[in-house]
Design a protein around this nucleic acid. Structure first.
Lengths: 216, 216
DNA sequence: CCACTAAGCTAATGGCATTAGCCGGTGTCG
DNA sequence: CGACACCGGCTAATGCCATTAGCTTAGTGG
């Protein structure tokens, strides 16, 4: 089987795409732009990547894996609250360091991407070991950490916080809520969830229903 | 000034777009599709909406305002932990009820959208009043609630959790972390943040740098 | 009844993703 | 050594989509 001259490869394409996004934002991610940066005609990319959707997915996997590597490094040699704090700090640092990259994360149920996401959760899980949580409760806890950090990061990356309060302080509080909460519930079972609170009837939609929109 | 026949309007266009997204997912949001649903030629939409980006922004505002209304209803008549729990439950219910809608939320620093986001935070703020937090700490707390719920919701909506554990339980834990943590810190100042943890040097990028990608 | 204007339409442009089919170089195997 | 297969690139073509320009029409206010 011929190895062919070492030229582009799927990985290299992802590299180019990543730099493009870093510099020009997620909206600039187009096969045409990637091809141009790679010094190649657009259709050539299809030799390495099935289509734009796949490129996005590959990028997402790369980003999540990079992120996992970072936070893994941050956790090394620390444990419990220290570890969680370091992990969450490193996570946010990554996002702040590559804001566009984070908001380019795929919004699709690609299993490949979801697996990469679970690889991130694995690191969180490891950092959580010191709390001695039960197997499945550890998973819930790790998910909570991921949700909290991810939510904060997404919102911060898209500039969703308007008020003047410092985001650093907000993040400190978030770390505190998570770490503190996990700390106090080590080796305890989940408390019985309260009875579901009945919803007040949803307020009626404020506007005309979308069909019969044209009077006439 | 002639009012003209009551036909389409910006609001009506947003209605159509919202239904489109609800049914066919965020990727299906295209002016052509909206126009077709509205029974109108594509360029006609420009009489009501400046361009696709503005339509997206308007949609985001609507979604966030709907959401704010829902959670406002959920909080009515409850306070403290009860209120937070109800709020978070209602929030997730909204997202689960319109999964596509939530992931169609604008990812751009549109100030209009950010303001709508802050309107959501206002509701959270109100729900937090019972905790008697200081002004600015209340804002931090509200942001934490938003971040946690948003993160969870985004991840759940895009199916990012793979493991078999029930998401309901995870969410219960998340509520518990947030509510519990806020509870124990009522009327307390922020604890002195720990000294910044020095980062281990970032692991070297695993792949060739994106320029000089083409040998030869 | 007339003019104004909002709201709709058709036609045209240009970007982009994607497909089809061609070509040259490189290694492998006879 | 030479034929072959195949890889990775290219050009051409298609079709969808957003967006713009300019025309048409139908209510409204005078």
């Amino acid at each position: 089987m011929p190895v062919a001259r070492a030229a582009l490869s799927a990985d290299a394409v992802v590299d180019v795409a990543l730099h493009l996004v870093d510099e020009d934002g997620p909206a600039a991610l187009t096969l045409a732009a990637v091809a141009s940066r790679a010094g190649v005609a657009t259709p050539s990319l299809y030799k390495h990547v099935r289509n734009l959707a796949e490129l996005r997915a590959l990028m997402s996997v790369r980003i999540l894996d990079d992120l996992a590597e970072r936070i893994r490094g941050a956790v090394l040699g620390r444990s419990a609250d220290e570890a969680i704090r370091a992990l969450m700090m490193a996570w946010r640092d990554y996002v702040l360091g590559h804001p566009h990259r984070y908001s380019a994360l795929d919004q699709a149920p690609e299993p490949m991407v979801a697996q990469a996401g679970d690889r991130v959760v694995d690191v969180v899980l490891a950092a959580l070991r010191a709390y001695g949580l039960e197997d499945s409760e550890a998973i819930h806890a790790a998910r909570c950490v991921r949700a909290a950090v991810h939510g904060f990061a997404v919102l911060e990356a898209e500039n969703a916080f308007q008020r003047p309060e410092k985001l650093d302080e907000t993040y400190d509080l978030l770390i505190h809520l998570v770490a503190g909460g996990l700390h106090t519930r080590q080796r305890n079972a989940l408390p019985a969830p309260r009875p579901a609170t009945p919803e007040p009837p949803a307020a009626a939609s404020r506007r005309a229903p979308p069909h019969e929109v044209r009077a006439k």
